[in-house]
Design a protein around this nucleic acid. Sequence first.
DNA 1: ACAATTCATGCAGAATTCTGCATATAAGCA
DNA 2: TGCTTATATGCAGAATTCTGCATGAATTGT
Lengths: 126, 126
Amino acid sequence: MADSARQKRYSEASTRLKLLAHPERLQILDTVRRSSQCVCHLEVLLGKPQPYVSQQLRVLREGGLICDEKDGLNTYYCVCDLGVRAWLDTILGPAPTERSHPLAGCSCPKCTAQKPPIEWVLAASL
Amino acid sequence: MADSARQKRYSEASTRLKLLAHPERLQILDTVRRSSQCVCHLEVLLGKPQPYVSQQLRVLREGGLICDEKDGLNTYYCVCDLGVRAWLDTILGPAPTERSHPLAGCSCPKCTAQKPPIEWVLAASL
DNA sequence: ACAATTCATGCAGAATTCTGCATATAAGCA
DNA sequence: TGCTTATATGCAGAATTCTGCATGAATTGT
C-alpha cells in the first residue's frame, strides 16, 4: 500500500474513533444497536437533558455511525452499517440478543404500548 | 449486567479509544504490531521530531497498548496484548504477515545489520 | 572522565472538544 | 389557528488534548 493511502486510512480511522471515544456516545450506540430507540428513551437512559442527547446523536449521525427514521413526532435511531456493528462487537463485545425492555419514563409508542400497568401483570399471573 | 458495570465498561473503552483516535499513534501501532521497532525507526517513518514520537510512545505505553524492551541504547516497542491486536485487526484490518523492511535513515542494529550496501546486492546477483 | 548517541520528560501556548443552556423547528391535535 | 410534545440547532465558556521545544537521564565507546 502507498504511503499516502496509509496516511488517509489512519486519519479516517482516527476520525471515526474520536466519535466512539466518549462514554455517553458509546452507551447510545450500545443501546441502539440492539433495537432502534427514540430520543426520549435515550434521555431517560443516560439521565442527561434532551438537548445534550440530541447533540450527541447529531455527532453520531453526521459521522455515519447511526441512521434516523422518523415516525410522527418520534425519531428512532439505529445502527445500520455492518462495519460499525463489527467495531462495536470488538469494542463492547457482541450485542445481547434478548429483546430490549420498554423503559419506564419513556413515553414513546414503542415503550408505552408494550408496558401494561403492573396491576395487570400481577393479575395475569394469579 | 448492572448499570454501574456498564458505565464502567463504557468509560474504560472510551479511555482506550481516545488513545487510538490519533493518526500518528495509529501509525505507530500499525508498525509495531508487525515487529518491534526502535524510536528512531518510528521517528523516520512519521517524519516527526524524536521528542514528539517519544511522547506518543509514552501515552501508548502508559495506556497499556504497547510494551518496551531495552537493548543497549535502543528501546524496541511492540504490541504484546492480544486484545489490543484484536482491536487493531478490526480497526485497521489484519496485519500484513510479510517481514518489515529495514528502513533507510534508521541507524539501529536491526535496520543496519540487515541492510547491506546496494553494491553488495548487485554483485551477489551477477 | 568525556563525548556521543538514544531516548525520556516537563512545560506552555495553541487548538480542539465538551457540555449546558436558550431557542428554533416540526408534527399532531383541539 | 393555537397549543403541546418531541426533537434539533446555535452558541459560548470550560475543560481537555495537542504539539513543539528545551532539557534531562542512561548507555556506550574512547
